[in-house]
């Protein structure tokens, strides 16, 4: 398992390298640049600025310098649009915010989705099952960018229960709406998936064997059925994490959390090359880490997968 983890970690390096090179050139293909504005700068000033940020060098030299600085100093360079801040500062400030509500959102997705799915399965074809399944289908059609405004409308504007945005050091009132808005449709997906896989596992021959052993139903569910029923959910979580990362960009902007999503969007508008590239690397590292965790969880549950690692 350790071996496998190390091998996976090693594959990050080439992957990241390819990603950096691609993104680097792609961004430069887009028209405009960080210092183009409606009233063009006087040529002398422009030359000065470009030199200061190293943008006067040939592209491949810029790329090489960029990578060198990351490898040697873990330095993602200065922001081209936010004065006196470099990308490292922006990440240090914004990333913990995004990560915090993202974490709680994932907790919400799993801690609500899985039990709801199991409860629906245990009482399947009952009133509870139907209402749960109905609710799940209903919530799945509310992606975060639809749910967020509705929640603000209700909880902030109508009832005044929760603040409609901001972060305030990450107090729970500020976390709750971003986390729930980001996660709800996936929570519903997890519930539906868990219900289905749990029902399937409960009708499998090895559960019949467990019954024939005279084990109480609770033991059968917890000891024999839970782990295998969660395998499809784990598989589902791979893409879900990616959607949630993408969704967090919207959530950061909509709720003005101060998370990195806002910087990412600003960076795109102002052609802030270093900001965009730095955050792209960060997002992909996050995706990679989450997927590695999922794969390890998968191996932990399924001995057949484990023996192949």
């Amino acid at each position: 398992m350790l071996n496998y983890t190390l091998r996976r970690l090693l594959t990050v390096v080439p992957t990241l390298l390819v990603l950096i090179v691609f993104s680097f050139y792609l961004m430069r293909l887009a028209p405009g640049g960080p210092f183009t504005s409606e009233r063009p700068l006087p040529p002398a000033v422009m030359a000065n600025v470009l030199e200061r940020y190293g943008l006067d060098e040939p592209l491949h030299v810029q790329l090489f310098t960029y990578i060198k600085n990351i490898v040697l100093h873990f330095d993602f360079g200065p922001s081209f649009s936010q004065k006196d801040r470099d990308v490292n500062d922006v990440i240090a400030q914004g990333f913990p915010v995004t990560l915090t509500y993202g974490f709680w959102s994932a907790v919400f997705v799993l801690a609500c989705g899985i039990p709801l799915g199991i409860i629906a399965a245990l009482r399947h074809n009952s009133f509870w099952d139907y209402s749960m399944t109905g609710l799940a289908i209903f919530s799945q059609i509310f992606p975060n960018f639809v749910l967020a405004p509705i929640m603000v409308l209700l909880f902030t504007l109508s009832w005044g229960l929760l603040p409609g945005g901001g972060w305030n050091g990450g107090q729970w009132e500020y976390i709750i709406m971003p986390a729930v808005a980001l996660g709800t449709s996936y929570m519903a997906g997890v519930a539906r998936l868990t219900r289905g896989s749990f029902l399937e596992v409960m009708s499998s021959p090895f559960i019949r064997t467990a019954r024939a052993k005279g084990l109480p139903e609770r033991t059968i569910i917890i000891r024999h059925a839970l782990k295998p029923a969660l395998l499809p959910t784990l598989t589902y979580m791979g893409p879900v994490f990616v959607y949630m990362i993408t969704g967090s960009v919207f959530i950061d902007v909509f709720f003005s959390t101060g998370g990195i999503g806002q910087d990412f969007i600003d960076g795109a508008y102002s052609r802030d090359y270093s900001m965009l590239l730095g955050l792209t690397i960060l997002y992909s590292l996050l995706t990679f880490t989450l997927n590695l965790l999922l794969d390890l969880a998968y191996a932990w549950i399924d001995p057949k997968v484990r023996s192949k690692l």
């Binding site: 021959p205 090895f206 019949r208 064997t209 467990a210 024939a212 052993k213 005279g214 399924d302």
Partner: peptide, 19 residues
């Protein structure tokens, strides 16, 4: 079950818990 009366199912491939 199992203490007084036990059962051997037909398919040994699926009647054990793979996990």
């Amino acid at each position: 079950r199992a203490r007084d009366i036990s059962i051997i199912f037909q398919d040994p491939m699926s009647s054990l818990n793979p996990y």
